[in-house]
Design a protein around this nucleic acid. Structure first.
Length: 237
DNA sequence: TCTGAGGCAACTCT
DNA sequence: AAGAGTTGCCTCAG
């Protein structure tokens, strides 16, 4: 079966992370790993050294303030559910973002988020004005299969997904191969998103592929994921 | 015990 | 204005 499993380069495991990662690692491991399939185009790399990632993770835990109350619940198919994770959005003022029929205003940027965003921009050449943060407290927290609603994003702009904390499995599934009425057999693509990693999801991935973060009971530690986006600033009537 | 697949739930937006 | 799209939970089988 086709599986696309991304692992950390061995040179990074447990290393002190004192020196900046060379552009052409001695291991021969390419800096970026290209993940390609029909209608899917993603690039994966480790963005931060372990020391940097540890520091950022700690800062995120101290400084990010998650939504509370009503905003932690979701109304779908006539039922209210608690979202099985914590969420919050940060971004440029005056932007809005609609999720399940509710329009949110992002919180203003804080230094640790600026730092991550600027590093992503430096590495990818893409700018971002908005970030959705999801915190999965352990392997029981998850997100079901979905596509990101791209109607509010700048057309064809990529989404940059940066992960800190516990390494979690991440699954892409093609829209034509989902469920009982699937019209085609296309293997899901399974990745592991490591501490300090960046997954750049490029057009048209989100058009054809759903993604999810399945439960993993053996994972006991939290993971924080940030998805940087470029939201359109059009005025809605 | 864990994982993944399937079935189920009602309403909004286009 | 009909239809497409939809998140999470539960059950069940391997």
């Amino acid at each position: 079966m086709d599986r696309y499993v991304v692992k950390r380069p061995s040179g990074e495991a447990g290393g002190g992370g004192k020196r900046p990662r060379p552009e052409a690692p001695a291991s021969g491991q390419p800096l970026w790993q290209e993940i390609r399939a029909e209608g899917l185009s993603c690039d994966y790399r480790l963005l931060f050294s372990k020391a940097e990632a540890d520091e950022i993770f700690q800062q995120l835990e101290e400084e990010v303030e998650y939504f509370e109350g009503e905003m932690t619940k979701l109304h779908v198919f006539g039922k209210w559910h608690n979202i099985p994770r914590r969420q919050v959005t940060y971004g440029d003022p005056e932007l809005t973002y609609t999720y399940s029929g509710v329009t949110f205003s992002p919180k203003p940027w804080i230094p640790v988020l600026n730092h991550i965003r600027d590093r992503v921009t430096l590495d990818t050449g893409h700018t971002f004005n908005f970030v959705l943060i999801n915190r999965y407290k352990d392997g029981g927290d998850h997100i079901g299969e979905h596509r990101d609603d791209e109607r509010e994003l700048v057309p064809r702009s990529p989404i940059a997904s940066v992960s800190f904390g516990a390494c979690r499995d991440f699954v892409f599934r093609h829209c034509d191969s989902r469920g009982k009425n699937a019209t085609r057999h296309i293997e899901p693509i399974k990745l592991q998103l490591a501490h300090g990693s960046l997954l750049l999801m490029k057009y048209p991935t989100n058009v054809y592929w759903y993604h999810s973060l399945p439960t993993r009971k053996r994972v006991l530690a939290p993971r924080i994921n940030l998805t940087f986006r470029k939201v359109m600033t059009v005025v809605k009537k």
